[in-house]
Design a protein around this nucleic acid. Structure first.
Lengths: 210, 210
DNA sequence: TAGATTGTTAATCGATTAACAATC
DNA sequence: TAGATTGTTAATCGATTAACAATC
């Protein structure tokens, strides 16, 4: 396997799951081969970009032929670490947390939510799907004993930094934050914000002024 | 007001709500003036970038002094169209939809969810906060009579394209999609995808391989 | 005034796209 | 073989950052 190149750009990494999803659809349709041209058409991306993105991880295609769907899927899973189990800790058992925990295991059997936490005494012990809500106080221990590697913050903005700090303390190095707050993290931690307030407000810019 | 410059880049637009949020916090703290330097420190952004972003809409600061917090807030709201009422149609009354509709009205009293739709007969008529779940069949009429301008898709992937088409038919030109699906839209429609599956999968790339 | 900080131009950096030799 | 399509280099485009004159 090619060494993890620290020079792979974030833009490339963010397109990989899009390729993976498309490839999975193709496999479901029984398609065996696909060209960058066809993928580009379907995903509204430049074929050269797709080839370049993929080529930064190895030579997955055949000149004159294209990419073999099942092979490419396997490779993409490898690159994204989706070929092994990844445990996710989800903090916040409100509607958002429940919605996320229902999300069909992220369409990849290998990534699962292995812990659901909240600070509301009323919620502790409640069953949400196959999960039982635990107290955030137990987050650190749980992350270590259950070897969870990704944290999802789905709590109110006011509580987000505290949860973030707890995750960092628990050695979690990859965090997805849904709270509308700018979180402070130490170097070495990957934080991604999915802030729906921000998205909506920036979209409002494009409304016709009338 | 400066004319809507079609050359304002998406990257700039996406930072505006981040500035707005920070400015609101400052106002809440009673801060009256702020420099690009200070904002940059707090938001982890380059001060030159902040100045340049803001300057593309006018001269909001004073040389040697900085930006007046309340004036900048007012200007940012204007630019983002957040100084007037914006009606949002939310489709999907599952946990995600409920979470979104609870979201404190997007921290801007002027943007509100004015319609909540679903296709599940069981849900039609149910009360979610101050909203009553309506049938998607009524989406088009509702968007027009209630003059809703933004659509949020919070339905399963399989239903997303249908809802998207209905929104477009209802003259909605700005759409925020939460379903993990690549939607087809006609030119002139602004679509933003917030795909949490994709986010998580790309984050998995950064896990240490062990 | 002197120090500070904007608005803006120029320089740099990074990402996308075009083009094409290699080759299946 | 001839046509197709990759992998990759070079060209272009766009976004970020540095630098500084203008000025509060």
């Amino acid at each position: 396997m090619p060494t993890r190149d620290p020079k792979i750009s974030p833009s490339v990494v963010r397109r990989l799951p899009i390729y993976l999803r498309h490839i999975q659809v193709l496999r479901g349709q029984g398609v065996e081969r696909v060209s960058s041209q066809e993928m580009g058409n379907n995903l509204d991306l430049n074929p050269a970009q797709i080839r370049k993105d993929l080529a930064s991880f190895g030579e997955f295609g055949k000149k004159g032929v294209g990419y073999e769907v099942s092979y490419l899927e396997r490779k993409l899973r490898q690159i994204l670490n989706l070929d092994r189990h990844i445990g996710v800790a989800l903090i916040g058992a409100g509607h958002l947390g429940i919605a996320l925990s229902n999300y069909a295991r992220f369409q990849s059997e290998r990534m699962t939510i292995d812990g659901l936490f909240d600070s509301d005494p009323q919620k502790i012990g409640a069953k949400i799907g196959h999960l039982t809500v635990e107290h955030v106080h137990d987050l650190e221990t749980a992350c270590q004993t259950r070897r969870m590697q990704i944290g999802i913050i789905a709590v109110p903005a006011i509580a987000a930094q505290g949860v973030c700090d707890a995750l960092v303390k628990a050695q979690i190095r990859v965090i997805l934050n849904f709270a509308p707050a700018s979180l402070r993290i130490p170097r070495g931690v990957h934080l991604r914000n999915t802030d729906f307030t921000t998205e909506l407000q920036s979209l409002a810019f494009y409304l016709a002024d009338d």
